[in-house]
Design a protein around this nucleic acid. Structure first.
Length: 472
RNA sequence: GGCGAGGUGGCCAAGUGGUAAGGCAGAGGUCUGCAAAACCUCCAUCGCGGGUUCGAUUCCCGCCCUCGCCUCCA
């Protein structure tokens, strides 16, 4: 296999990932709604999309990666008003937080990161086209709805003929509360333009149908069209977006553009916590900050997110984070033994050399779990051989390993504990202990070892000397 | 009710029609003054019951259980 084969949720088959035209793979990822810190479940999606991109680029293909920011919707408006700040200031703050978390997770920044607020005219234009073509209508209150009946293919992604709104899942109460649904011709129709409401405050825009704001589904269609064109290669998001969000995007875009919207749908399954869905009520929504406060690193989080395949719900536990820390430590040790490894992306699969099985596993529907297994197997094999390897062989291994680490988006930076991070007193005790040990003063040496441990650090001895590291 | 996913060693998790990767934990060992770290070795017959097959964990049927989506959601 020399290109990525990926499961397509529409055809429900594995398909090769190749550009429908040109030499650049164009893909769109539904990005975060910036109204609070993203949790690790959100990041599972973004991490897998990141691996997707890294793997594609590792085969020598160029990419154009677009990931939007949803910076206007019910939640952002409600929260910003509750905090008494403007919508723009509010979403800017959370966008910065998202960028910071993304960086610590080693996510490659998308080539374009469009925001919904910056694409109001594009959205209005699409609505106008949809009305003109008979796929949308304006209701009495000035909202505009998409007419699901007008699109024969509606449901082709989710295989739901239309929204099955029954008394089972819509209670009387929510029906009354959701005034958006008030004016619709059919319960399946969804909103493209929401007429201005009092609670929106200053957050409204002018349109041919009156003041209001765009519907959530439309944002993505408009940004896809502008930045990737009417048809493009891959569209990705969390599994929950499959319906209705992506189904609605298809309807809007195909009716507006008169062209097939997306060639390949890439959906990432949810992250579970302790066997249950993450939710506020279960109090199991972890953020990067929370986990770092507990002493874990973002790289450990990334490792856990890679440890299962994306098509399967993954069970996150604090134990798995701990295991990830140990596993990363072994990878780091190996990297250190290997000596300097090069930076950068592979330009072809041949560059992986002896580590080819790892990238092959990734090319097979991004099987990160298998890839990590292959990686450890290869490492085990090399552990014994390294001292006997000639330089060329060693360099080949260094390159292959480095490219694997890049494809997985790991860094394996050696924590710089030698001088900078270690507290002065701990460093001193460690030095004293080493000296006592050299003098075979075991009592003093052991005493200092305990003292160092009491400070939360540990010494690791080798034949030549010692290092100091945080206590695991 | 409709659609979908899954039940693999103590935990997490791949995979295959021919008797099951990897990580963590655990056990033993090398090293060590003793430890730690590192390295080496060991550690599962795949929810239950049928069937197909020379052979099934992997295919088919039934059953039990878990979870997700169908409503804002990564």
């Amino acid at each position: 296999m020399n290109c990525l084969h990926l499961y397509d949720s529409q055809t429900r088959k594995n398909k090769p990932v190749t550009p429908i035209e040109g030499d650049t793979l164009r893909f769109y990822c539904c990005g975060p709604t910036v109204y609070g810190p993203a949790h690790i479940g959100n990041f599972r999606t973004f991490v897998m999309q990141d691996v997707f991109r890294r793997v594609v680029e590792s085969t020598g293909l160029k990419t154009r990666h677009v990931r939007n920011l949803t910076d206007v919707d019910d939640k952002t408006i409600r929260q910003s008003q509750a905090e008494g700040v403007s919508l723009g200031d509010f979403t800017t703050g959370w966008t910065e937080k998202f960028h910071k978390d993304s960086e610590s997770l080693n996510l490659l920044p998308p080539h374009v990161e469009p925001s919904a607020v910056d694409h109001i005219p594009e959205q209005i234009e699409m609505i106008a086209t949809l009305i003109e073509k008979g796929h949308a209508y304006r209701s009495d209150d000035g909202s505009v709805y998409f007419k699901v009946d007008s699109f024969e293919d509606y449901g082709k992604l989710s295989r739901l003929k239309e929204r099955e709104i029954t008394t089972n899942n819509v209670t009387q109460e929510t029906e009354r509360e959701d005034s958006d649904e008030y004016e619709r011709e059919s319960a399946a129709d969804f909103v493209l333009w929401k007429s201005r409401k009092e609670e929106d405050g200053p957050n409204f825009w002018e349109s041919p149908w009156g003041q209001g704001r765009p519907g959530w589904h439309l944002e993505c269609s408009a940004m896809c069209k502008k930045h990737l064109g009417d048809s493009f290669d891959v569209h990705s998001g969390g599994e929950d977006l499959l319906f209705p969000h992506h189904e609605n995007e298809i309807a809007q875009s195909e009716c507006c553009n008169g062209a097939a919207f997306v060639n390949h749908w890439f959906h990432i399954s949810h992250l579970m916590v302790d066997g249950a869905k993450m939710s506020k009520s279960l109090n199991n929504l972890y953020t990067i900050d929370q986990l770092e406060e507990m002493g874990h690193t973002a790289e450990e989080v990334r490792y856990v997110l890679l440890s299962g395949s994306y098509g399967q719900q993954l069970n996150f536990t604090l134990d798995s984070l701990k295991a990830a820390g140990k596993a990363l430590e072994r990878l780091r040790d190996f990297k250190e033994k290997l000596g300097a490894i090069p930076d950068g992306v592979a330009t072809s699969l041949d560059d992986f050399g002896p580590f080819r099985p790892v990238i092959d596993a990734l090319l097979n529907d991004l099987n990160t779990s298998d890839a990590l297994g292959k990686l450890f197997s290869l490492i085990k094999q090399y552990q014994k051989e390294i001292p006997d390897l000639d330089n060329d062989t060693l360099n080949e291994a260094r390159r292959g390993f480095a490219y694997c680490i890049f494809a997985l988006g790991l860094k394996l930076d050696i924590p710089k504990t030698s001088k900078s991070n270690v507290p002065e007193n701990v460093a001193q005790m460690a030095a004293d202990r080493w000296e006592a040990k050299q003098n075979k003063d075991w009592a003093k040496s052991d005493e200092l070892r305990d003292a160092i441990a009491a400070e939360g650090w540990q010494v690791k001895d080798t034949k030549e000397g010692y290092t100091v590291a945080p206590l695991a």
